[in-house]
């Protein structure tokens, strides 16, 4: 009776259930779980923020600080942020046991202090990024501590001076 064939299949197969959480989950080595940002490596450059499709990563300046926030509750686990991170600060973990009772618990933040323009005082970039840039290519302080706007103005002024226009 082939109707009963299913019994034969069942007998042969036995029980396949994984007793998770008492047994390990059905994970493969390739699984992409939540990402983890290493605050000691992150520059706060925002490359990950630009590439993140659902805006799970945001970089918001506020006062003297800029906060890089990772909201795992909106993450789509594509791992693109880890691929583009120039500082290799983002790691794709195998973590999937992320449940929480409040949305706040799903957020992790890295707070960056902002360096300010030595002329106008506007925030330019994060101190961490600044240090990295200086380390890799020594440039003069008058450059890295001046915001692009002031730099442009200064350049224009210098150029005009050179052209002999003088101060108006």
């Amino acid at each position: 009776m082939s109707v009963a064939k299913i019994l034969e299949i069942a007998l042969r197969t036995g029980r396949v259930t994984r007793r998770y959480p008492y047994e390990p989950p059905l994970l493969t080595p390739e699984f992409r779980g939540a990402v983890k940002i290493d605050p000691s490596k992150c520059w706060g450059c925002g490359a990950c923020v630009k590439v993140c499709p659902p805006n799970a990563l945001t970089l918001k300046p506020a006062g003297k600080e800029a906060t890089l926030e990772y909201f795992v509750g909106r993450c789509v686990f594509c791992g693109m942020c880890a691929e583009v991170c120039p500082a290799k600060a983002i790691e794709v973990t195998k973590e999937f046991e992320l449940s929480a009772t409040s949305l706040e618990d799903l957020k992790s933040r890295v707070i960056h202090r902002l360096a300010r323009c030595s002329i106008c005082g506007a925030p330019i970039w994060t101190e961490a990024e600044l240090r990295t840039v200086v380390k890799s290519s020594p440039i003069a302080e008058e450059y890295y501590l001046v915001c692009p706007k002031c730099r442009k103005e200064r350049f224009a002024k210098a150029a005009m001076l050179r052209l002999g226009a003088g101060s108006e």
Binding site: I6, L7, A10, T13, G14, R15, V16, T17, R19
Partner: peptide
């Protein structure tokens, strides 16, 4: 009835 569910599960290859 519980046994029934258990046996049905076994035929489904689960616990």
């Amino acid at each position: 009835d519980g046994l029934e569910r258990k046996i049905r599960a076994a035929i489904h290859t689960r616990i």
